[in-house]
Nucleic acid binder design. Structure first.
Lengths: 246, 246
DNA sequence: CGGGGAAACAAACAGTCATTTAAAAAATAC
DNA sequence: GTATTTTTTAAATGACTGTTTGTTTCCCCG
């Protein structure tokens, strides 16, 4: 009401962060980008906490606190806890899937027949790339994704998560089947499923192999793992496929 | 005090083996035949619910209700929710590990050298056997075990769970290393780790492969899986091990 | 018989949970 | 400038959480 309202703000006892301190002036006149940072900050916090404590182990209060936002804002922006979880996945899923598809297309470019190792690498390399060079957000997301694959699937709200990746997985299986025409289609599916299981296991819970091998294997060394895992599963496919090379 | 309490006692529908409970501290010769069934019923209910809804998704009130027991009894018998979870695992872990060790000893009896398939089978067969013919309790336990392997390991209370199986896993790895003397020890660890990952994935979340293969693969058909998985991973080991047979 | 200890009961504790509501503030549109 | 929409704040809801307490019942041993 008062004409020139002096910025009189009641300091909350908890939040001391000055909000909206981003790069306000960058010579852009379309400055309608002020708010969205809260939404993103909630997503970031949710991503980090979900992967750390699991879905049920994380409360919206934890998330709000970590994001420096108000509790009700999670509901304002996302609707519910389940919707927030899906939003965390949806934010990066498409780009990740596009990366996988791109890598597959690249090794099959020009109709040439790739090696088994190339196809298997095309599936794990983009993921590892994100973990190593995508920043903390991507690192959390990938691990969360691996975690989702192992959650009790009775939770219907996370079914759409897996669906994101089904199509591109099918394309990989299709390509593997082309490489091994004498292999039963069923066995191609099994082989690739085992491959996925190893990958998600590795990304999700890196402690076990380190412990069991007394430190001889280090699951955190992703560069090495890419070589080891593609080599092993290529051998598996070749052994089943009955072909000597390709 | 109305003598007829609203709590109706249900007769246990399952035969309770008169288990000589060495529960309490020292060697007391007290043979109570009334008490143990409540403790077991709580364990059964916890086992079923933990695997269905996860640790955080299951409340002690859910468990008490399903067990037909009083809420406080979970604390009386087990101390806390985390202790109860550990008790669920501890109840069957030793027998399960013994089965695995027994199967390994059997295929290496008399110092003879087993085939790769035999060693790999010795690791999965006892587990599948329990799932198929061990009753509902074992079926729940095995799946819970697979679930634990995929839980956020920041939860320190479930670390001792995995430890149960580390020793026998090492024995299997040791045997595999003997079968492939030219293989780097590191690679043996990796291969067996991949194998474990596939198994736990399969037992924990059987929906994915069914969906991705449009029903061509059925993860519920454990008999078939044992054949498929041992064949594939045997091929992987042989390919890496560089040896043609064994 | 009574004592004793293990098991079962009933009620409460002190929080936390996801979710909602209504009003204030800020940003945008007109 | 005012009007309107979007975002933020603060507080409350009622149900549910793990855990503890004090008492009562049961059963065995003396």
């Amino acid at each position: 009401m008062s004409p020139e309202s002096p910025t009189e703000k009641k300091q909350p006892d908890t939040v001391t962060h000055s909000r909206s301190d981003g790069a306000t002036k960058a010579g852009k006149k379309t400055d309608r980008r002020k708010a969205p940072q809260t939404k993103e900050k909630i997503l970031d916090a949710a991503e980090a906490l979900f992967v750390q404590k699991g879905y049920y182990g994380t409360s919206l209060r934890d998330i709000s606190r970590a994001a420096g936002a108000q509790l009700a804002l999670s509901y304002y922006h996302f609707g519910s806890k389940e919707d927030l979880f899906r939003a965390v996945i949806d934010r990066r899923a498409d780009e990740n899937v596009a990366d996988l598809r791109g890598a597959l297309v690249r090794v099959t470019a020009g109709g040439k027949s790739p090696t088994v190792e190339e196809v298997l690498s095309a599936f794990i390399e983009p993921v590892v790339e994100k973990v190593l060079r995508g920043g903390e957000g991507w690192r959390n997301y990938i691990r969360l994704l691996a975690q989702v694959a192992h959650m009790p699937q009775e939770e219907s709200f996370l079914v759409p998560v897996n669906i994101h990746y089904d199509a591109v997985v099918r394309e990989f299986v299709e390509q593997m089947a082309r490489l091994f025409p004498d292999m039963a289609r069923e066995d191609v599916h099994w082989g690739f499923y085992f491959y996925q299981a190893a990958i998600t296991d590795l990304l999700n819970e890196p402690g076990m192999v380190d412990r069991q091998s007394d430190g001889l294997c280090r699951a955190s060394d992703l560069e090495t793992i890419v070589k080891k895992i593609t080599r092993f599963f290529a051998a598996g496919f070749r052994g089943i496929g009955g072909l000597q090379d390709r």
